[in-house]
Amino acid sequence: MSTARILIKHGDVRYRLLKVEAASDGSLICLLDKDPQPLKGGIRVETGKLIAEADLEKPVPYGRFSIHTTGEIHRYSGGQRKDTIHIEPLHQLTKAHAVGYFSIPTPERLDTYDASKHTADVVETLEIPTEVSERLTFLLEIGPKALKVATYGIGLSYELYTLVSRSAAARLPEELAASFVEAAALTVFDSRQIQKDEAELRFYQKIYGQGSFVFRENGGAYVALTSVPMARAPTMRVEFDGSELSIETIPFDAQNKPTHKVRFWIRDKGGRNKQHDLREHIRSVVFDARL
């Protein structure tokens, strides 16, 4: 998983605005990069009405969006799922799709950035003039890799798409003047246009070509993808160029056994080898998913 952060520079201070995490299947999690806090005096907007939230003493996270490879997008607030919308699958985006927006009362209400604590693979910064100390609203969009930033903002480019965070206008009721607000965009489709396993396979095949292949995760484990979804969760045999190497399958959760991949460790004479990329020693991979 890779992490990107978008900062706001206001005067001499850099604040954390958004954190974006890219998962191995091509999906994204985009969240307001602010430390969880107890919920006090919260208000939500529901069918055009303002509804008071129950106060919570336990710190709760701020808003976030999960953008899945299938094109399904969930909005979370206070740690709970609130909305779901559907756009084109991420491997075949043809245009910009609005995901939703984050709106903050003033730049100073964000948390400050410390490079030693808030690590990231990519850090981008938006500079806001010092004289601006008012509500800022940022629209999230996702589209093809060539997607341009239409207004002041930043685009994060990935293998097949670009995620844009750009300034936008927002008309909010006076009751929300001091609140952090997020909202999902309107849905394009009524349901998912593709199943999860097929979406992930098509995503990677568009990057690497047709067929099955093996990729390595940051923690040293491996994932082998089939060329098509199989009849049931597959087993796998791997032949290496050296007899000292073998695999140890990592089981998926019993409720979530995918039909298109196997996750595993490669073991050498010292056990699980998490340090070295040993894919060059793989001679063949054979899947079996017979009923």
Results as ranks from 00 to 15, higher is better:
Asp12His: 07
His68Pro: 00
Glu124Gln: 15
Ile6Ala: 03
Val262Gly: 06
Phe213Ala: 03
His276Met: 02
Leu139Cys: 05
Glu159Ala: 03
Ala289Trp: 14
Asp33Val: 00
Thr137Met: 03
Ile207Thr: 10
Leu139Asp: 12
Gly78Ser: 12
Gln80Ala: 11
Lys117Cys: 03
Tyr204Arg: 05
His68Ile: 00
Glu174Lys: 15
Lys40Arg: 15
Pro38Gln: 09
Asn273Cys: 04
Ala178Glu: 14
Ala54Asp: 11
Tyr204Glu: 01
Leu110Tyr: 07
Arg44Gln: 14
Arg263Glu: 12
Phe213Ser: 00
Thr137Ser: 12
Pro38Lys: 08
Ile282Cys: 11
Gln80His: 14
Val228Cys: 10
Met1Pro: 07
Gln193Asp: 07
Glu108Phe: 10
Asp197Tyr: 04
His74Glu: 12
Lys34Leu: 05
Gly242Cys: 07
Ile154Arg: 01
Val228Leu: 08
Gly100Asp: 12
Pro229Tyr: 02
Leu28Asn: 04
Arg267Ile: 08
Ser165Leu: 11
Leu160Ser: 15
Gly219Glu: 15
Phe264Met: 02
Met1Lys: 07
Met1Gly: 11
Asp114Ser: 09
Val13Gly: 00
Met236Asp: 02
Arg166Lys: 10
Ala52Glu: 14
Gln193Asn: 04
Arg279Tyr: 09
Thr226Pro: 06
Lys269Pro: 06
Ser116Gly: 04
Ala289His: 09
Pro144Trp: 14
Lys274Ser: 11
Gly78Val: 07
Glu239Trp: 15
Glu200Pro: 00
Arg14Glu: 09
Leu93Val: 05
Ser157Arg: 12
Leu90Cys: 08
Ser133Phe: 00
Leu201Phe: 01
Glu217Lys: 15
Gly71Ile: 03
Phe203Ser: 00
Val214His: 08
Glu72Phe: 04
Gly155Arg: 04
Lys206Gly: 11
Leu56Ala: 15
Arg263Leu: 07
Val285Cys: 13
Val286Arg: 15
Thr112His: 06
Arg290Cys: 05
Gly220Leu: 03
Pro173Trp: 08
Gly11Thr: 00
Gln37Val: 15
Asp268His: 07
Pro107Met: 01
Leu172Lys: 14
Phe102Glu: 01
Lys34Ala: 02
Arg64Gly: 12
